[in-house]
Design a protein around this nucleic acid. Sequence first.
RNA 1: GUGGGCGUAGCUCAGUUGGCAGAGCGCUAGGUUGUGGUCCUAGAUGCCGGGGGUUCAAGUCCCCUCGCUCACCCCA
Length: 421
Amino acid sequence: MTLQAPKGTFDWLPPRSEQALAVREALAAPVRRAGYGYIETPVFEDTALFVRGVGESTDIVSKEMYTFEDKGGRSITLRPEGTASVVRAVLQHGLHGGRLPVKLWYSGSQFRYERAQKGRYRHFWQVGAEALGAEDPALDAELIVLAADGYADLGLTGVRLLLNTLGDRECRPAYRAALQDFLRGLDLDEPTRARIEINPLRVLDDKRPEVRARLAGAPLVVDHLCQACKTYHEEVRALLTASGVAYTDDPRLVRGLDYYTRTTFEFVHDGLGAQSAVGGGGRYDGLSEMLGGPPLPSVGWALGVDRTILAMEAEGLLDAEAAVSPVQVYGVPLGEEARRRMFSLVTEMRRAGLDADMAFGGKGVKAAMKGADRSGAVYAVILGERDIAAGSAQVKDLASGDQATVPLAEIVTTLKERLNK
RNA sequence: GUGGGCGUAGCUCAGUUGGCAGAGCGCUAGGUUGUGGUCCUAGAUGCCGGGGGUUCAAGUCCCCUCGCUCACCCCA
């Protein structure tokens, strides 16, 4: 054992890595069809962006960030989530001065310093989508529907949608105070008592049974909503229902980032171990202003790529037997001269649009044929001295075992015909 | 940060009251001097995670340490 990947990280190897690519594409496809443009932002940002955006009181900022000083003395942080960067980029480049809403999607690595466990890693991948600059329940519903469609396209049937609203700056302060009053009267441990003062809504999210029991009579946001929030939330729910997207109202759903307002949602799955969320998001009407920008009511989500793969695995949707990068044609050269000829022939095939590979390492016929079999190729092209002398090669159908002699000059066209290309 | 489980071949794992380091899969070669999948044969690969201790003798018992993993917490 020499060096290994850092704690909490892992490598994606074939064929799982191919599935990861496919999952990213499948989750992004619905938003691309809905007019969302692709954005890439730096993997690291000014630390202040996350402190102000995500919120100082959150666990993410207070203890999970990879923060370091660069050689110029700047405080830099590896991004723990994607939304803050997208908002920063929109503000920096004035995209909000154009057509609204600004619709963007992204895909990339995120970093959080946590104790690793199943479904939770220090380096993970998210596909995200954000719609900035419009306050319209249809936009909230659109994003939720697009995410649900992405999961459905992957064949997932066990993804459930939890929905809630957190109110806005109009009604949340009063609710927050009422909740704090209630919580202060409970017998709770010290970290939780501290959380009551900083971020009381998160206490509702506690999973410990003994805490949950004490929270039984806690005031809920839904009972403290102002009329505007109530109407907004009803509209979101109606649109989801009209789209055939099932959801469960979860009045205790509170998300870990401070910037959320009104609509919040989480997609959960039971096959991931203790980590149940495969995706989540919500509305963040105040984030732009927190970052020094103009009011820019927005909504967005992030879907966990590796968690989605775990969910697919739990549902038996991943083909473990999948051949690694299967090719159509596999070259079997016998001898030095044949090896040179085969190299050129395979190059020619590839340029002609065929997926082709060949035996390397001077293997004998038997081993080379074994390689052909494992490559997943439909045809093997065998070339030895006798064939070169005759100006031809053997084309073998690996499924049937039928073999034909084909002139070298016609190999590529013959294969293309047979493979229907 | 806290707690549980586990570290033996590339992979999955056996290894008895302490007594020569093993199997299956995979890999390489041969059976078939130019043909894969099935079958047969042979071969290679180990600081038994690391360090210390007990013992004639430690993969096995004791201590320390590192790593992995699951869970709490937290979240995608």
